[in-house]
């Protein structure tokens, strides 16, 4: 299953809710304001690092770049472009969008 998170981890609990129920082997894609969850050195960093032990975590590069944080992404978070987004949606059977 693919989980998308589009809210900042500091503004909403979408990322926390996602991580609470995410199954091992699932993928988490951070998009829009959700990409702040991919940052190093924030209050949310330990949480996402923990999640990366069981899930693949991706972040959408165009959204990172728009926010000027493309050079501050946590090691292990894979950045992808829009084509990669489509590939992920095709790869996993279902998508849960944590709006």
């Amino acid at each position: 299953m693919l989980h998308t998170v589009n809210k900042s981890p500091f503004q909403a609990n979408a990322l926390l809710s996602c991580l609470r129920v995410v199954k091992k082997g699932s993928a988490i894609l951070l998009i829009e304001d959700g990409v702040y969850g991919a940052l190093v050195g924030t209050k949310a960093t330990p949480t996402i690092q923990e999640a990366m032990k069981n899930s693949k975590v991706y972040a959408l590069a165009p959204d990172l770049e728009a926010r000027g944080i493309q050079d501050n992404v946590l090691k292990g978070v894979k950045t992808i472009d829009y084509g990669g987004f489509v590939d992920l949606v095709a790869e996993y059977d279902t998508v849960q969008a944590w709006l």
Binding site: P62, E65, A66, R67, G68, Q70
Partner: peptide, 17 residues
Amino acid sequence: DDGVYQLKKGQDTKASG
């Protein structure tokens, strides 16, 4: 709050349009 991110250097919106 998240408003501080408005002032982040290096914003580049080309790819997102």
